[in-house]
Design a protein around this nucleic acid. Structure first.
Lengths: 250, 250
DNA sequence: ACATGTTCGTGAGCACTGCTCTTGCTTTGG
DNA sequence: CCAAAGCAAGAGCAGTGCTCACGAACATGT
């Protein structure tokens, strides 16, 4: 049916890709708010109305770019996880976090598209959900490994949070303890607070050496989320500075 | 010179206020990207060109709204701090954090204006810096009080972060230990990660009971930033669940 | 091989935007 | 009282998202 049959179908996916590519360029130059379909068409040498054969409206173009961005950052996270496959959970965590930050700094406008101000009146369709979850799934995977390998402390939850934690765990990672999932989600949001502040310039004139600052903050987050150095037979990384069993109050 | 002399000057500041007010209304309805000067003028019953007597261009109107928003959230933080003046540092911290979140949920578009994606090509003028710092100053004040009252643990910093921590402390809070300032800045960014995820809908379909989730996360942040219940003579709040001295590794 | 239905690019056009400039009017200060 | 300065209005320019009717190129069933 809709395979790469004729020259027509082939041309269609080529033009679609060219539009997205040019749109991404404009995104980097002007930002999402000023993304102009007419300008994209002009740069591609086609009539402005021709764009609408490929994307019914501006928001749909944005949706395509959003999905691509989620896939891109998700892929980066997965690659970082795989590159640090032999290291311990804390090293894997920090490696993934630093790669997420690196991606954000390399693609600030695409980062803004997915983690910044949502486009007004635009609600992301359901198709964006799976790509959006890729990054978080990488983090959850690291926690899962640590959980199975005694490298994860189970934080103590207050009773009032327990039902919500159980609910969250059921929809996100049913095989992990609810305490871990709840803490993980909060930590995940906090991580993007750090990244966002840097990308959006909130650290200007305040934090200078942001590499080191971020590295330290992310190690602290690893502790917050419950990652500790394994207690029996340390993993690949140096395990000199041992961690506590660490059950935190309230 | 430029006091409230004639009826003309009075009218000017009245019209300026009316423009900002109407602009804020449009902001809440349509978002910053679709803020239309013509629509503002139309709603105010004046010619579109008349707006430019008061704001030379659209970005300057946005700048005014940004400053107002910073002042508004800063004022909210200060009010929360004063309302909890008699409580202990942890209660003050959580009260301020929950007020910040409350303000953000009440004014999502103004929140997006100051903590979301920056307007492309627009760099905030220096006049926005003092209002922007108001909120963080409230948090620093709480830490200062706790520091003087033995309610603050001094976290252990790795050596590589020390010079940067000293630099940050010098420009932000010279009277506080560098470790505290460094940890505080990271925690501050993480707090806005939590708020941003909620305001921008990243928690949709994942976190249901966000009040409780946020309250727990903020208590955890209080621990991260080093706030503990005072060791000699507990403060006003209940001090039953005592905290550890808590010096954290790496 | 031919006719049919679908897809595509085009250019005109609508309603809207930010912004500029000239033209007159009103208020102000000397 | 009168010149100077501030002000609103309207026309106009260039740009935007988006629609529509039109031929041309393609795909496909008979």
């Amino acid at each position: 049916m809709s395979s790469t049959h004729g020259a027509r179908a082939r041309a269609r996916i080529e033009v679609t890709a060219a539009i997205k590519e040019e749109a991404r360029r404009q995104l980097a130059n002007e930002g999402a708010a000023k993304l102009s379909l007419r300008a994209v068409a002009r740069e591609l040498g086609m009539a402005s109305s021709a764009i609408y054969r490929y994307f019914p409206n501006r928001d749909d173009l944005l949706t395509a770019l959003i999905i691509d961005a989620y896939d891109s950052i998700g892929e980066a996270a997965e690659a970082a996880r795989d590159a640090a496959a032999d290291a311990g959970p804390i090293e894997r965590w920090t490696t993934v976090c630093e790669r997420l930050r690196g991606w954000a700094l390399e693609h600030p406008h695409e980062y803004a598209l997915i983690y910044g101000t949502p486009v007004p009146g635009y609600t992301a369709p359901a198709t964006t959900v799976p790509p959006a979850a890729r990054g978080a799934m990488v983090a959850i995977g690291i926690l899962r490994d640590a959980h199975q390998g005694l490298g994860l402390a189970r934080p103590v939850l207050p009773d009032e949070l327990r039902p919500e934690a159980v609910r969250m765990a059921a929809t996100v990672a049913p095989d992990l303890p609810p305490e871990v999932v709840a803490t993980m989600l909060a930590t995940w949001a906090q991580l993007f607070g750090l990244i966002g502040f840097e990308v959006f310039g909130q650290f200007n004139r305040v934090v200078e050496d942001r590499d080191i600052f971020f590295r330290h903050a992310v190690r602290q987050l690893a502790h917050t989320v419950g990652l500790v150095y394994p207690q029996q037979g340390p993993a690949a990384g140096r395990a000199g500075s041992a961690g506590r069993p660490a059950a935190r109050p309230s």
